[in-house]
Design a binder for these strands. Sequence first.
DNA 1: GATAAACTCAACTGTGTGTTGAGTATTCCC
DNA 2: GGGAATACTCAACACACAGTTGAGTTTATC
Lengths: 221, 221
Amino acid sequence: MAAMEQQEVHERAGGRRRGPSKGDLREQAILRTARGLLADKPLERITVDDLVSGAGISRPTFYFYFASKQAVFEALLDPVGDAIMDVADSWLTSPGGSREELHASLAGLAALWSAHGPLLKVVLREDATGALLECRDRMLGRLAANATARIDRDRAAGLAPDGPPAADLGALMVRLLTQALSDAIGPSGTDPVPPGLLDTLTVVVGRSIYGRTPSDPAPAG
Amino acid sequence: MAAMEQQEVHERAGGRRRGPSKGDLREQAILRTARGLLADKPLERITVDDLVSGAGISRPTFYFYFASKQAVFEALLDPVGDAIMDVADSWLTSPGGSREELHASLAGLAALWSAHGPLLKVVLREDATGALLECRDRMLGRLAANATARIDRDRAAGLAPDGPPAADLGALMVRLLTQALSDAIGPSGTDPVPPGLLDTLTVVVGRSIYGRTPSDPAPAG
DNA sequence: GATAAACTCAACTGTGTGTTGAGTATTCCC
DNA sequence: GGGAATACTCAACACACAGTTGAGTTTATC
């Protein structure tokens, strides 16, 4: 319960209460250490002691700045989540249904995975909890909602054939993309996304949404 | 290092060395307890103490039968892995490229996920290690190899258009299927797979492999 | 220069994994 | 049936990691 109180204090002003700077440096040092360690080993193998010794502080000092190890990675993830939202929105608002445009959108996603691989892998993991889980659901939800809207729009315009409910198809495409990108960057999360993968994803997403097989209805208009 | 020795003893005959039965009951009790607990909570929240008290033994007795908590779940997974291999092979050897046949194959996979959901989720997790990781790679590899062979065959027969390298496409389809099924059965891994998902997956896989968009080549023959 | 808020830590608690060392039961061979 | 090997069992450790306590020092503010 004492833990609760302390966490609430932290929540109140997103980490520390206020104040100019002295401890800001330490907070930054913790975040920097976390980011660095993440390139070497997965989240579950990073201990509070790693962060503590990396930042040159003691254990309780760490807990003064962050409520838990997870909270550090949540803080790290915040700006990345925003970037994902931007990609999602730009995909929705981009013009036509051309292959090039789809390819470009996927490249935007891939760039995020290249830049923040380890972090994105963490948040997509099945056993995420707390704020990490919320963040994931928000990210995936926004991506899926925009994909769904896109599919509906293109179906209404006769660009895409009917098929599964747009929401199901959209959610599936999002899962496919995020999973494929996470796989591509390897266990450490630092490999580059191979260009061939982008081509394959473009074809698969393109065919799934716009493609026809003999048993699909013919194009409208 | 003492741990090493004990583990090797275990490995030598897949668990215990031999002998008739007395301890076989305990081993079964541990496995049964593990399977039961898995329906309630995820692997990482199951402790050795849970298994120990569930099976009515002491801690060291547990370690006599299994080298670690992970080893228990590896043992549980063995037969499931075999079943996956069967599904993979039956998909490869099934006849034509009809939608019904694809749907039936996917239903076979889905049945496995319904029956062994929690276990399959564990093995597909990114942070699997040791034998669990090997098992996963073997399963996914076999599925992907068979999907690839299937795509090659159907392309050669003029049933499927050209497109991304068959191996890339096959691997992506496998990832899509396993991920979608894992998602569908929920966090606990015990929800039923909704029938609508099977339809959607059938369409997506069908279109990805056999479908055409205006920019894809026309059907051969 | 006193008061409060920001900051720091040595030493602790708690929970989990895996081990040690010393046994008891079972089997197998004579 | 006696004796040695093998199967099995456990109380009591050792250790790693998360998170806490309680008491202290610095820094900003009036």
